[in-house]
Design a protein around this nucleic acid. Structure first.
Lengths: 159, 159
DNA sequence: GTTGAAAAACGCGGAGT
DNA sequence: ACTCCGCGTTTTTCAAC
């Protein structure tokens, strides 16, 4: 279900293109990869069915919707039970300001990326995070500038 | 150019929908927000022209293209010149495995998110990062699990 | 803002090489 | 597996309200 899949050169080029712009007309994609539209369409279909392409979304400018501040939150926990984890996971899942959430190796247990309009709003999210879940240590770092952000994954490693 | 913009309830609802699924037919979006398709189309057009919706992309499953490992890289620098920064920025920009890149406040100067197939591949990226740019301290943490990742920004703060 | 409708573009699939 | 071609749908634009 979630194994790597076999992709040839054309598949990769198609993925590169749609990762950058999913509105590109099929005919144009087809031309770019040197195919006619039908096989190109079938390939895209196959990539969707295989779960390589998961979905197609509109990206929104963070500044224009007033969430220009991103905060990186490092969390260390005292408790390490399954029950605590599930609770924390559910909390993060429910907070829309938490846009990324990783379980880490090393000294930090969890890492979050949170987007908010300002420090005051972050404080509200912070309170929501620690409410209910017993966090041992929470360290928040503010990003001054987003220098790069892309949803396009490198395809050179694809099998 | 990058100021927050005025969005009413319908605009927000539309953005919520297209942030989740940009393939939704216009007629269906229109119905969901209680509008007919013409004004709905005009609103989406306006949101694109205003730069609120920046683009429409296909999201790819990281596991299936063999970049299931994400590494968080904290960078401290010895040099703090404009020239050094530009060089480092260009390096990160050019490395497709670097999918996010922030300038931070606090003890860490820069934070990167890197996606790779395995530790060995990360080492290659690491070498590319430190080559040419004189990094004082680089600390890499591996994510064991991606518990949440969304491109959908919270819209409750939009003005 | 609405409806309706028409033009153009595009997705989708069949038939054939 | 691909090309060619056409049907059906959807987008996009245009009226008039």
């Amino acid at each position: 279900m979630n194994a790597a899949i076999s992709l040839d050169t054309i598949d990769r080029r198609l993925l590169e293109l749609v990762q950058e712009d999913a509105t590109t007309p099929l005919a144009q994609l087809a031309e770019a990869v040197g195919l006619s539209s039908t096989p190109c369409w079938r390939r895209l279909q196959r990539l969707k069915e295989a779960g390589v392409i998961t979905r197609q979304v509109a990206l929104v400018d963070a500044e224009r919707v007033n969430v220009g501040v991103t905060v990186i939150v490092s969390v260390r926990t005292a408790v390490h039970t399954e029950e605590w984890f599930e609770r924390f996971r559910a909390t993060c899942e429910a907070i829309p300001e938490v846009v990324e959430f990783y379980r880490m190796s090393g000294d930090v247990d969890y890492l979050l990326r949170v987007v908010v309009p300002d420090i005051k709003a972050y404080d509200a999210v912070y309170k929501r995070l620690i409410a209910g879940t017993n966090l041992h240590d929470v360290s928040s770092s503010f990003a001054m500038e987003q220098l790069k952000y892309t949803t396009a994954l490198p395809l050179k490693y694809a099998l």
